[in-house]
Design a protein around this nucleic acid. Structure first.
Lengths: 185, 185
DNA sequence: GTCTATAGAGCGATAGAC
DNA sequence: GTCTATCGCTCTATAGAC
């Protein structure tokens, strides 16, 4: 793999584990097996490299979610597949995690991929919910945008509860509770 | 206010805004209007001060939640009051935020208040849900522990979505979607 | 394109005077 | 109890050789 690619992937991994403030250029270089000069040759600095890495992680998240939410099952099945897919729960969400970073949220360039990713995700889930309404799976009164935000929030919040408990249990409880509520509709 | 108290409150505020990794002793001293020697006279170091500050924030969160969840309304009213209370949504949760910090999660002393807070919160919400089942507000099939985890997760995840969007809208959507689902039971 | 050397600043902590 | 001085280290970045 080329140096640039290794630098980007190492940055993605470190941002996921340690966030922007907790990730140093030196650590990125170590992870990537690249030297100081090599990194600064390809990227203007930490911020630019982080921008590229965050955009990459955002794309990957969207691709994964799109796959789970597509298919020809019922709305409930597709949402269930999305909620129940294999996840590295205790590591948390590589995109959502960055909202805790003040430097990411304060920089429009760095925050933009976060905003776009969750806007897209909520919109995509809302479409599936709307389809479920059309075929009678869900009642007419259900608001797709609200339910979509609730679904996205349960996942993000599930990660928080799991990391606090150092256990996947609260995440599983939260997801299953949401599924119970959706199935009762 | 005494120096010790100012140091603790400043640390609470900085941990909320910037997390453990992003908070330096120097910044704490500046915020508190205390000198270097003063801080190290009262506390062994950053970790000990953080431990006290985190425990304080955890207590405050529990006290606030206990207040909203108590009272003599129906279960739905009390959960609604808790979900809809005034919140500094874009600042996020002062306890949940710390789950993003690898150094907090890795240190049992620092993680303990987080684990205890959310364990207590989920248990407390589950009690209210169980009361709702008893008086016929919710169906017998409802699992209080699951629903409690879902409720806690929607709040924590709502903060994440709001910070990503730099807007309180997704938080409000997620909370209202949850209320819709609960009211339909 | 990658290397080493170096910079100025801040980090977290300690020492010792007052 | 609070102050200033200092420590060894890391941070992010730049310079210039190869």
């Amino acid at each position: 793999m080329e140096t640039v690619e290794r630098l980007i992937r190492s940055t993605q991994e470190l941002l996921w584990e340690r966030g922007y403030v907790g990730t140093s250029p030196k650590a990125i270089q170590r992870e990537a097996g690249a030297g100081q000069g090599s990194m600064y040759h390809h990227f203007a600095g930490k911020a630019e490299l982080a921008k590229v890495a965050i955009e990459r992680s955002a794309e990957e998240l969207r691709a994964a979610a799109a796959e789970q939410l597509a298919g020809d099952g019922t709305a409930g099945e597709r949402i269930g597949a999305y909620l129940s897919r294999e996840r590295d729960v205790l590591k948390g969400c590589r995109v959502g995690r960055l909202t805790a970073d003040p430097e990411v949220v304060a920089d429009p360039e760095l925050r933009k991929p976060l905003a776009e990713t969750f806007a897209w995700l909520r919109e995509r889930i809302a479409e599936v919910v709307a389809e479920g309404k059309q075929n009678g799976e869900y009642p007419e009164t259900l608001d797709p945008e609200r339910i979509a935000a609730t679904i996205a929030a349960v996942l993000q919040g599930g990660y928080v509860l799991a990391r606090a408990a150092d256990s996947t249990e609260p995440f599983d409880l939260a997801v299953n509770g949401l599924i119970d509520l959706l199935e009762a509709m």
